[in-house]
Design a protein around this nucleic acid. Structure first.
Lengths: 85, 85
DNA sequence: GTGTGACTTCAAGTCCGTG
DNA sequence: ACACGGACTTGAAGTCACA
């Protein structure tokens, strides 16, 4: 796993945690809302999971947002979002 | 795999194919640009692959766009983008 | 309420090829 | 140039017990 990938996943994790806190949800509650295991949420927030598109869709709707919104935030956080060079 | 997931992946595939054609790229060329195997690109376009976040990032930059842009298009195509109900 | 390690099953992703 | 397949290695999905 490249360093850039890691930083993307870490940024995603921070973002999701931030959104979750803003909604005053526990990982358990978000897990329920998104039909994902609480420990899986934990892994995503810590940046050790690389979620699939469908997992992202589940997460986003649990957080009452869309994937594109979520990733737009990610793109403002990660300045150089390029894996291919 | 639920029906909704399939329709999301099919929509993503159509979208990517459309973008790729617009750029006048072959699957092979896009594979090269995004550092992904050509057969994998083929699978994504046919909706039988569920790409990870990092794969999406790679694809997006190969298509000279961002993941959020790509998924915004997807959200306009897929009316009910909700896996959790 | 969360982090973490370990685990199994299944899909991601690559590489070989065919028509 | 692409769909499709087999075989392969790595990693994601999904869950558990424990601290």
């Amino acid at each position: 796993m490249s360093q850039t990938k890691k930083s993307i996943l870490l940024a995603l994790g921070r973002l999701i945690k931030h959104r979750r806190k803003a909604q005053k949800l526990s990982q358990e509650q978000l897990g329920f809302l998104s039909n994902l295991d609480r420990t899986y949420i934990s892994g995503v927030e810590r940046g050790i999971r690389n979620p699939s598109l469908t997992a992202l869709v589940s997460l986003a709707s649990g957080l009452d947002t869309t994937v594109s919104e979520l990733l737009k935030d990610l793109e403002t956080e990660v300045t150089n979002l390029n894996l291919n060079e």
